[in-house]
């Protein structure tokens, strides 16, 4: 950790890892502080150009975090090159924020975590709240001095689940964070989202449906811990210490839920299945359940 945690928020203090979130106040007071890098990561690749937090650099998941050929993330060398180019050092504190209640910001945070970048935090409420609070924006694009970020191999065994991991996991908790329409099999894409290709509709047997946005309060910030526990432990039936896998359609909405499970509720064994429905719903002979009930594991 380079920059002290945001300890001013009683809400954060109740979370399992309070240091993973910062408020707009905290961030605005520290803009430009050495050792702190602000990263914007959005669904819309041009939104950053319309105005961003002063000094923030942009990281785009499509064009920068994904491998351009294989369906995978960049490798250790690619990640090192990316972060060096953005002027980020291995021991920097990174604060990520973005549009859509931090969907893509949480996705970036998860990918950074696969490479073991230790101190990555989210701006609670994301881009919309920063703007709603009347905080500064600029269209000046910073030109950071390149750093020498080390090549660290990605660890895919701890925070990431592959299809075979999920098959082996059946019987332990799964959280499907998609919309009810996608969960039941009425459709394969998020409402009002483009078709990204899945040949079958439904959900992974036994998965509980907790749409990702349920973790978010009306003002776009994360709900307090007690409310999150009522949803994930109460309704979805998770038990502290559970080994839990979250999935969605391509792994971005479930990164948001993964963040909630891992960092706000303290599920140390939470993983994100980034293959998600676009893989599972097209894979041959994997079990699928259609309808509103979680269903049973096939014998």
């Amino acid at each position: 950790m380079t920059v002290e945690f945001d300890s001013g928020s009683p809400k954060f203090g109740e979370y399992a890892h309070p240091g993973r979130l910062v408020t707009g106040d905290w961030l605005e007071q520290r803009l430009g502080q050495p050792g702190l890098v602000v990263v914007e990561s959005d669904e819309d690749v041009l939104l950053y150009e319309t105005g961003h937090i002063p000094g923030a650099v942009k990281v785009d998941w499509h064009t920068e975090l994904n491998d351009p050929v294989v369906r995978d993330y960049v490798d250790g060398a690619g990640f090192a090159a990316l972060l060096s180019r953005k002027g980020i050092s291995r021991d920097d504190t990174i604060v990520v924020y973005g549009d859509k209640n931090n969907w893509w910001a949480a996705y970036a945070l998860w990918v950074f975590s696969l490479f073991g970048h230790e101190d990555v935090r989210l701006l609670d409420g994301g881009r919309d709240r920063w703007i709603a609070e009347g905080r500064p924006l600029t269209t000046d694009v910073p030109a950071p001095a390149p750093t020498d970020y080390p090549v660290v191999e990605r660890d895919d065994s701890t925070l990431r689940a592959y299809r075979d991991d999920v098959l082996a996991h059946l019987g332990k908790p799964l959280i499907d964070v998609r919309s009810p329409e996608e969960y039941t099999g009425a459709r394969t894409t998020a409402p009002a989202y483009p078709e990204e290709g899945a040949l079958r509709a439904g959900h992974i047997p036994t998965a509980q449906n907790v749409p990702w946005a349920r973790a978010v309060a009306e003002d776009g910030t994360f709900k307090p811990r007690a409310e999150l526990e009522a949803i994930y432990l109460g309704e979805a039936g998770l038990k502290p210490g559970d080994d839990v896998v979250a999935y969605c359609r391509i792994g971005e909405r479930s990164s948001h839920t993964w963040f909630v499970l891992q960092h706000l509720l303290g599920f140390e064994n939470a993983r994100n299945y980034d293959g998600s429905w676009t893989e599972w719903g097209s894979a041959v002979r994997v079990p699928i359940v259609a309808g509103a009930e979680p269903g049973a594991i096939p014998a």
């Binding site: 690749v45 041009l46 785009d60 499509h62 064009t63 483009p194 990204e196």
Partner: peptide
């Protein structure tokens, strides 16, 4: 390449 093939598909639509 700058906006990604998935996004350009939106313009095609």
């Amino acid at each position: 390449r700058v906006v990604s093939p998935l996004r350009i598909a939106g313009m095609t639509g």
